[in-house]
Nucleic acid binder design. Structure first.
Lengths: 239, 239
DNA sequence: GAGTGGTCTAGACCACGCA
DNA sequence: GCGTGGTCTAGACCACTCT
């Protein structure tokens, strides 16, 4: 029970402890957690308190609960990577599935701006991934992805990168992206944009600057996407 | 108690009923709801069930709860209108407060596209508001706002419109905006954009198309904002 | 001190999934 | 039939606000 008040509500402490275990990999993605009863017994609190902590984790999409089956660590489905963090839609709102082409991967030392964006030390190495992506078979966006080599040790040695990198980040490296901070602006197509997207230099394009944050708050990716918005739009629901 | 299962959990039914009362104006913004005890007694359910419904309303920002004081219908503070639905920030992430100038207001019949966007009948009237808005004293965006006259009967007869329209929608007309669907794209500045924003024709600008939705699901506003993103960016947090 | 929401507990019963 | 999470209840105690 509640020996020392601990300055935090019990269910908060339980929440923190359970999140910690997921971050530390005690329970891996798609694995089942112990039942409420088991956790309550282990931690010496009531089932209701465990439930409150677990439900908070559900709303943050850290776990999924299925009646009759159990509580499972959330897995990065293709679905989620694509539709939670990929906001491009056709004008009628329908979802699109981008394909990748002409992917280049380089390992190098982080530039100063990259170190700042990703909280890296002087001399840290990063991997740069550049891709052109097609939507409905039309080249629509160019993407530059910067990830710290320390977090993804051999990512530059994999032959074919998957279409949704976030699934790979989780399954191969244990980094589950749960949040992304984006900044959008309008810009004019550079010569390189124009060449890759088959448009005129100076055409207005949507410039998206994203920092992806993994469970535990670590910045794991800096991504710049430059998009032609004649066929697709960036759709978002504020509430 | 639970006479007929009703096909919905009890707390859901309580939730629906309480939301209905707020929509119908039984309790007005900033008013206090009855205490949990009172509601539980009135509805013949336990306090815990009422609490679950109220907490759901808290997460949707329909009410606010203050320990020791009570539960209050959420009020559209300047704060919320500005920072929940207005996503422009300086590049360092700091908030900006836009001012308005050269505001024009016209009443007219809705065009076909406007009827479609706002679910209006043939012949319905709308009010069109056009404003140029300054950020840090620099003209930064042009805004076109279309609202149904039926929902805002005399909005074209008010002298000076406030900076944050959503506060007015709520306080004067009882329409509380709780959600906004936005579509963003890049576009080139038209001659009129150029004149109003003091930029070159063809400069890339960020085009934001928004439908604002009030409590109860009614579409209450169609707004197009066209923004120069050299000093500010559209910042959003996906999670 | 009275009244409010916030936390925590304990237990009953239900709906679901599976063997 | 058993174990899981989902709903609902009842009651104790705490923290905060106001008078």
């Amino acid at each position: 029970m509640n020996e020392a008040p601990g300055l935090q509500p019990l269910y908060q402490q339980v929440y923190n402890l359970l999140v910690r275990r997921i971050v530390d990999g005690v329970w891996r993605p798609a694995e089942a957690l112990p039942s409420e009863q088991m956790l309550a017994a282990e931690l010496g609190v009531s089932q209701g308190t465990v439930r409150k902590a677990l439900n908070a984790m559900v709303t943050e999409k850290l776990v999924e609960r299925r009646q009759g089956k159990g509580t499972f660590v959330a897995q990065h489905t293709q679905e989620r990577a694509l539709f939670q963090f990929f906001r491009l839609r056709r004008e009628d709102g329908s979802r699109v599935t981008p394909e990748s082409r002409s992917c280049t991967v380089k390992r190098r030392k982080a530039k100063s701006q990259e170190r700042q964006k990703l909280d890296l030390e002087e001399g840290a190495k990063v991997v740069e991934i550049r891709r052109t992506r097609l939507i409905d078979e039309v080249p629509t966006l160019v993407e530059t992805v910067i990830v710290p080599l320390a977090l993804f040790p051999d990512i530059d040695e994999i032959g074919a990168l998957p279409n949704t990198l976030y699934s790979l980040y989780q399954s191969r490296y244990g980094n589950s992206v749960v949040e992304a901070d984006e900044q959008l602006r309008a810009d004019a197509a550079t010569r390189e944009d124009a060449r890759r997207l088959n448009i005129e230099v100076g055409t207005p394009i949507l410039h998206i600057d994203r920092i992806a944050i993994a469970i535990g708050g670590r910045k794991v990716e800096w991504r710049i996407s430059r998009v032609t918005t004649d066929k697709v739009v960036y759709a978002i629901d504020l509430n």
